[in-house]
Design a protein around this nucleic acid. Structure first.
Length: 586
RNA sequence: GAUCCCGUAGCUCAGUUGGAUAGAGCAUCUGCCUUCUAAGCAGAGGGUCGCAGGUUCAAGUCCUGCCGGGAUCGCCA
């Protein structure tokens, strides 16, 4: 149930009535308007701008429309009063029972409160992480992984049928580098002195077990054959080991994908899905052989004109057309990605979301162009870019070098600070904003770290429920009993304020889901936790406001109904973020 | 040279798709533990929303041009 959507429906009905009464032009097309919580508490419970947006098309003064609407809206039984304010806002103030009833609604709907608002069960694909299978996940991957996962959770909650995918880049040159690097470790495992790792190969220690496993499985036999024979074997072996490791790393963050899609599979087993996709584009007249112009900033000496197969992405807003085949005829990375997205479309997805790192921003226009071309404009692709994570240790920048193999792995971070703080911190920022991640601060279990603040609110709610049953004999805290509580006793301003924040949850979820912005949930939870802590402390100062009234089981039941509702919403929000909602703090 | 992201309180950042008097945390100052968990709460000070135009009933939010910081830029992935 969404209170604000309900009010919007009332306004629409009132406007229709005014049209049939001839007080608004009968042919008036109603523009979209908002019914939302006002920022200023002095402006009632719901602010409606309908009169303002209608003024021009209806050729009437906004305040006249507002007055007419006011007369319609203020007759509702649950409305305390309607004010026309400012240039023509309608401010509705509800009677307290609206808020009291909302507590019951939340208890009835439980974890479904706020869910299912916009997805309508439509299929939606979220592709995220997609790190190269050449080594362990480092902390740079972490943000995209957490963001994608929380976004997927959010969209599931909003009612989409979501598939989480990981695109494995197992077809390019870098997996051959991986294979040669693993082969070196294999020779090392056989007792050879391999010396320093040559330039251009991966130096990381994580390949040692792969080498050892190869030695255990193949003995010395691989060493006896030429590279063109051992390379595919070692490559396949190393990739699967790397994927195992990556899946373990993701599991440490509670992240799982339903589909791992192999780039190499596009052109294996006698098929060529890349060609199929290019042919589909060719049929639309979007493929040609040509040369690309030299980019402006390019060094003149190195430039050389080459004839390539190009996709006319400029027809879809890209700056230049993009190469699908290299001059030697092999496919570009982009060509494989085109084929992969063609495959997504053929699997019936019309809503696609890709999560990219900041280093891939230049790739966005061509990807959108490809999806627009392949789907004939039927599918939407949203590409979310997560900006860089800058590591700090106690305020000092924390340097890492990928070349020396001394990068901070995702696992290092999770082991050091824990899964919940990592996830919350990664989400407590807009995705387009660069993120400073300070080990010292995140490890600090202080108010500085919002995850503890929010989790503490949940634990505090659980604690109050536990204490109540101990202090009041025979108190029934089942959901059914709490629903039956006399909720008209919830009349304190702090209690009403807390309920109003709960009431905002469904609309907030809707906005976050349609904007693909999970961070809004994280910030909302902080506010909600704050409202609970506030009311708690008011009870410290004024004992009659405490949730538990040892001599009054009736009042206690009503307040615990509110606590239970708050606990439910905090838990729903934390589940979207993939963060635990503990009943006890350690 | 071009594209994308960012610019809001001393610092780190929100700002509900254009709403009314721009918010929170940290830091500073003043209070609250005999208490349902002080891992908490209340209050004060702190602003030319980078700059300049434009769009309209209304702009931190949309458009244009600058300034500053970051990322990216033919066949890598």
């Amino acid at each position: 149930m969404n209170l604000f959507a309900e009010v919007a429906a009332r306004v629409t009905a009132a406007l229709e009535a005014l049209k049939t009464e001839g007080r608004l032009p009968a042919d008036l097309v109603l523009p979209s308007f908002d019914a939302e919580p006002p920022r200023d508490v002095g402006h009632g419970d719901v602010a409606i701008n309908a009169a303002l947006v209608l003024a021009k098309p209806a050729k009437m003064k906004p305040r006249d429309i507002a007055e007419a609407l006011k007369a319609k809206l203020e007759t509702a039984a649950d409305v305390e009063r309607v004010d026309v304010a400012g240039p023509g806002f309608l401010n509705i103030t509800f009677k307290p029972q609206v808020w009291q009833t909302l507590v019951r609604t939340i208890l009835q709907e439980g974890p479904r409160f706020g869910a299912g608002s916009i997805g309508k069960g439509e299929k939606l694909n979220v592709e995220y992480v997609s790190a190269n299978p050449t080594g362990p996940m480092h902390v740079g991957h972490c943000r995209g992984a957490v963001f994608g996962d929380a976004l997927a959770n959010l969209l599931v909650f909003a009612g989409y049928e979501v598939t989480r995918e990981y695109y494995i880049n197992d077809a390019g040159g870098q997996v051959n580098v991986l294979a040669r690097s693993a082969f070196l470790r294999y020779r090392e495992a056989l007792g050879e002195d391999i010396g320093a790792i040559p330039e251009g190969l991966y130096p990381g220690e994580y390949l040692k077990p792969v080498g050892a496993a190869l030695a255990a499985e193949h003995g010395a036999s691989l060493r006896e054959i030429p590279e063109e024979r051992w390379l595919p074997v070692v490559r396949q072996f190393a990739i699967s080991k790397m994927l195992e490791m990556i899946k373990d790393d993701l599991a440490a963050l509670n992240i799982t994908h339903e589909v791992f899609f192999s780039e190499a599979s596009l052109t294996s087993g006698g098929q060529d899905k890349v060609k199929t996709a290019i042919d589909a584009l060719r049929q639309k007249g979007l493929i040609y052989e040509g040369k690309l112009e030299k980019p402006k900033g390019h060094d003149d000496a190195e430039w050389e004109d080459r004839l390539q197969t190009l996709f006319k992405s400029t027809s879809f807003g890209d700056d230049e057309d993009r190469a699908l085949q290299k001059s030697d005829g092999s496919y570009t990375y982009f060509a494989g990605d085109v084929a992969y997205h063609y495959d997504k479309l053929q699997r019936g997805f019309r809503h696609l979301i890709n999560v990219f790192g900041a280093d891939h921003v230049g790739y966005i226009p061509r990807m959108k162009a490809a999806v627009a071309a392949l789907s004939g404009g039927e599918a939407d692709l949203d590409i979310k870019v997560v900006q860089l994570v800058r590591l700090f240790k106690a305020g000092e920048p924390y340097k890492m070098s990928k070349r020396a193999g001394t990068f901070v792995t995702l696992r290092d971070v999770v082991d050091e600070v824990g899964r919940d703080p990592v996830r919350y911190m990664m989400l407590y920022r807009k995705n387009q904003e660069t993120l400073d991640f300070d080990f010292a601060k995140v490890t600090e279990q202080s108010k500085d770290n919002p995850v503890f603040y929010v989790q503490y609110a949940h634990a505090r709610a659980a604690s109050v429920m536990r204490n109540a049953t101990e202090q009041i004999a025979g108190l029934n805290l089942s959901v059914e009993a709490l629903q039956a509580a006399d909720l008209t006793l919830l009349a304190d301003t702090g209690e009403i304020d807390l309920i109003k924040r709960l009431a905002a949850f469904p609309k907030l979820v809707e906005g976050a889901a349609s904007a693909h912005e999970p961070h809004r949930i994280a910030f909302y939870l902080y506010d909600l936790a704050s409202a609970l802590h506030t009311q708690w402390t008011r009870g410290n100062d004024s004992p009659h406001l405490r949730f538990i009234q040892a001599n009054d089981g009736v009042a206690t039941s009503a307040r615990l109904a509110l606590i239970a509702a708050t606990k439910t919403v905090i838990k729903s929000g934390l589940e979207i973020l993939g963060v635990e909602a503990p009943d006890v703090m350690r």
